[in-house]
Design a binder for these strands. Structure first.
Lengths: 214, 214
DNA sequence: TGTTGTGAAGGGCTTCACAGCG
DNA sequence: CGCTGTGAAGCCCTTCACAACA
């Protein structure tokens, strides 16, 4: 398995790698076994050199004159991203969204197992959702000590997101996926990703309103 | 209401404007009336000049020596983004995710009304979800002629996303929010935004795996 | 005086163009 | 011969530093 070649990798590259995997998986499902950077680039809506450069950060996965073997390339990229393993996650905030995510099978399929559900509402504590007992957020630390989770998912209301983040950080988590519509502050070693599809609707709104600025 | 000053606006700026609105709304909820670019930048995790430059694309919203009036700034940014109005949307793919979105009150609150629900599964057609009757996807064109929707939301399985997109484009939509885990191809005048939180989990996975490359 | 708005400088990502190689 | 891998060029965005001004 090739090792990373360069120290710094652009954030944009990582985001694109995730897109490549997605497109490659769909190609594989349709029976494509080999693809060159040009058609792959079209499918991903990027420049072909961009793909080759992105991959070059991690190794040489192609065959000159031929292209990339889809199956191999998926394996190489998922390995580079570190998603060729199980990640244990915990979820904080068992509201509508939280419950929907807890019941979402895709998490397990993709290797992101949700192994704990937390909430600070006494009425929710003890409730069972998707095979998990909802536990008081204050017990995050002890529970994570037991289950060894590394990633936290925040699905609280915005005003409770920072507190949830604090609990997660204290419990030793080093990655947070924040669905709450608020920014959170965490120590440098903790990674945060934000998911908010209203941001995307805002972008659509802007682009439709100003079609000339594209 | 100030007009846009410059022709081209970086995509990154638009994304940040959405963040600014989010943070400003939370500040407003907490009672903050005035804020200068420095603390706002901290809360948004960006550079202060960045904020000032982003805003400068659209006008002069601040008061020198004072800062920005939170309420005014929210109004200015939402106006710039074009989200100070109602947007009519239609949703294609009434599965688990689709139903969850149809029942999500926040859409209406934010001005993105879902006015149509479509699916190609005969068993779903005619069903009522959140006050909307599920209609056959083939009837998108005629229905949009009636309800004047401008934005389409795709929540189909990946293999049906492109077809859904084709129907939406044909029906005259010019913005698509795609939740399906596949890329779609559309004419130039149609804007597409992708929502996939596994991409974010992949990014977390990478950053945790390679803490030195940050 | 304090903070905005902005030209200029700087840096990083993208694209080009082609050498390298199967 | 075709496509990858990559140095170099170019471009766009970010950051700096300060003039402008309430």
């Amino acid at each position: 398995m090739p090792q990373q070649k360069s120290e710094h990798i652009p954030r944009a590259t990582i985001q694109r790698l995730a897109v490549y995997v997605q497109v490659l998986e769909n190609l594989q499902r349709e029976g494509t076994e080999v693809i060159s950077s040009e058609p792959l680039a079209k499918a991903c809506n990027v420049n072909a050199s961009q793909i080759r450069k992105d991959l070059a950060y991690f190794g040489e996965f192609g065959v000159r004159g031929v292209g990339y073997y889809v199956k191999n390339l998926i394996a190489s990229i998922t390995s580079a991203l570190g998603v060729d393993r199980e990640w244990r996650t915990v979820l904080v905030g068992v509201g509508n969204l939280g419950k929907a995510l807890l019941n979402h099978k895709e998490f397990r399929l993709r290797g992101f197992n949700i192994v704990g559900a937390f909430d600070c509402d006494p009425f929710k504590i003890g409730e069972e959702v998707s095979g998990l007992e909802v536990v008081c957020t204050k017990r995050l630390r002890e529970m994570i000590g037991d289950n060894g989770a590394e990633i936290g998912i925040i699905t609280t209301p915005p005003e409770r997101a920072q507190r949830a983040a604090n609990h997660l950080v204290e419990a030793g988590i080093n990655g947070i996926l924040n669905f709450a519509p608020s920014r959170i502050t965490v120590p440098d070693h903790v990674n945060v990703e934000y998911v908010d599809f209203f941001h995307h609707l805002y972008a659509l709104s802007f682009n439709i309103t100003h079609p000339n600025t594209k």
